[in-house]
Every structure is written in C-alpha cells, then in structure tokens.
C-alpha cells in the first residue's frame, strides 16, 4: 500500500478514529463512561441533533446553510403541543376541533415542511443567499413561536404523547429508532436516488449541473423542505421527551448541527460529505458533552474544549483535502 493510499484510508475513517480515541480516553478517565446505561443515555441525547443534522447535511451538500433549524424545531413542537392540549376553539362559530396524537404530529411536521419550503422558495426565486434567508427565518419562526405560546411553556401533554420521548420499543429507546430510521432513509436518498446525485452535483458545480439539465431550483426547494421537516421531527421528539413545549426550545441548535456536519467532514462549500460522517460528528459532540459532565469539568472550560474540537476537526479536514 502506498503512502497516499494510507492517507486516503485515514481520511475516510478520520471521524471514526477520532471518536474511538475520544471514547478510549474517557473510558480511562471515568469508569462510568463505558456502561450500557450511559451508552443509551448518549444515544438518546444525540437523537434530536442527528435528525436536524441529517437535514443540515443535505443543505450543506448543495453549498447552502440553514440557520433556522432551531426556530423551526421550536415552532413545530409548540404547534403540536398546543393542538394536542387545547385543540382549536372557534367560539364565534361554536366550533371546537380536537386533535389526536397522530394528528398533532402530522401538523407539526407539516409546519416544519412549510417553513422549510418557504426558505427554499425565497432562496431560489429571489436569489437570496441561504445564510440571509434562513437567518431571517430564524427570527421569524422564533417570533411565531412566541406568538403561539404567548411566551409560556405548554406542559403536561400526557403519557401517550410522552412515549415518543421516553418509551422503549424492542429494547431500544423510541428516540433512537426514529434517528436510525432517518439515517437509513437519508443514506438511501443520497446514495441510491437521482435526487441524491443531483444534490452532490449542485454543490460540486452549480453551473455545470444547470447546463446538464438538472432543475436546480426544484432540488434546492426539496432539500430545504426536508431540512424543515426533520427539524419538526426533532421538535416533536424534544417536546415529548420534556412533556413540555418550551418557547425557547432549540436555541442555538443550528450551531450544534453545523458542528456535527463539519466534524463529520462535510465541506461547507458543498459537494463533498456523507450522512454517516455527520452521524459520527453528532456522536462525537454527544460523547464530548456527556464526558465533560461525567468528569465534572467546569462549565467555562467545556465551552473552550468544544470550540477547539470543532476547530481541530476542520483543520485536519483541510490538511487532508489539500494532500489529496
């Protein structure tokens, strides 16, 4: 095997290697880290970030970005919780519409999809840079969440709804099932479908893709809609887990998910990256969050450490891609 081949193998598995080293270090530092219980803990905790980050990965692969995921998560979760708890009352018409759990979930996800669609529409129709369009959505959706909740949490949603966030199915937490299904579906999407090929193509070279006949606007709108829908799924998961829709839910989740995408080796300039990379990135962040608390590292230092890990990941990625 030549050196360059070594190198490319190393690059391919750099996230896995980083995760392995991190886990090894934490197991040596704390005997509480490598336990089954703690494993489920970490997986449950990262499941929401994985959902969001999968959507973010698709967006970033098209050389875009979505800063509004946290706000879309909050609004979708709050709408689901509000409909479940209060339904819709129209006293003027003496009308009350109640919602089943499935009904609220579907409405929540439709909300997120609609917001994501709006992002995609603004970006493609008016050529607004994704950074700006989704930055605007970040505040719009947060404001709508405040309007809908009036600034107060919507709590006590019942045990049945809580099953999503706290239940187990076949020995695995429901949250982890959801994340796993989303990972599987998105891997199929990116690797086996023409839409997946178009996403990579657009991020690689938008002009060439246009000339080769890809409907770029359509692909982008679909991608942002998926990101919105997945943020909504995350919103349902968080709301169910807490038995409460918090008006400030999902604050700065966009940063965690961008971090997962970047640590996972996806290039912010588009066209290069994988879903599995992002999943590993999310696991690395989750393990780091968990490990720093297990070791009782001061909250001040935690922020510094996390920042350096992101930086390190990107630097390694840069050095490797230059070597290629």
């Amino acid at each position: 095997m030549s050196i360059s081949k070594y190198r490319s193998t190393l690059t391919k598995f750099q996230s896995s290697i980083a995760l392995f080293l991190l886990c090894l270090a934490l197991s040596l530092l704390s005997d509480k880290f490598l336990t089954v219980d703690n494993g489920w803990n970490v997986l449950r905790q990262i499941s929401v970030n994985i959902c969001i980050s999968v959507g973010m990965t698709l967006v970033v692969l098209t050389a875009g970005i979505d800063l509004s995921v946290g706000s879309m998560l909050a609004l979708s979760g709050a709408i689901a919780a509000g409909l479940l708890k209060f339904g819709i009352e129209l006293p003027d018409n003496d009308l009350y519409i109640g919602f089943t759990i499935l009904g609220t979930i579907v409405t929540g996800i439709l909300t997120g999809s609609a917001l994501g669609f709006f992002n995609g529409w603004v970006i493609t129709k008016f050529k607004v840079p994704p950074f700006v369009a989704t930055l605007a959505m970040l505040t719009i959706a947060r404001g709508l969440t405040m309007l809908w909740t009036k600034g107060y949490p919507i709590s006590s949603l019942g045990n049945e709804f809580g099953y999503i966030g706290t239940g187990w199915f076949l020995g695995i937490p429901v949250l982890v099932w959801i994340a796993a299904i989303i990972i599987a579906a998105s891997i199929i999407l990116t690797n086996k479908t023409s839409l997946g090929r178009y996403i990579y193509a657009i991020g690689g070279n938008e002009n060439a893709s246009r000339l080769s006949g890809i409907n770029i606007n359509k692909v982008k709108i679909i991608v942002y809609t998926i990101a919105g829908a997945l943020a909504a799924v995350g919103g349902i998961m968080v709301t169910s887990r807490l038995d409460s829709a918090q008006p400030n839910a999902g604050m700065s989740y966009e940063l965690d998910s961008i971090a997962a995408v970047v640590i996972g080796g996806t290039s912010l300039s588009g066209g290069r990256g994988t879903i599995m990379g992002t999943v590993l990135g999310a696991i690395i962040i989750g393990v780091l969050n968990n490990g720093l608390v297990l070791l009782d590292v001061s909250p001040f230092w935690q922020q510094v450490v996390k920042g350096f890990v992101i930086l390190l990941a990107v630097i390694i990625d840069k050095v490797n891609s230059k070597a290629e």
Binding site: F33, D37, L242, S244, V293, L294, D296
Partner: peptide, 20 residues
Amino acid sequence: QSADFDRNKAMEVMESILQA
C-alpha cells in the same frame, strides 16, 4: 454544572451526572 436555565439541557446534564 450549567444547564443554561433550560429544561432540555437540564435533563441531559442530569442524565449524565446520574451516571457518574
């Protein structure tokens, strides 16, 4: 530990603390 006055963060941090 800090949980930023946030319900979700508090749950996650507490889950980890309970392991240790």
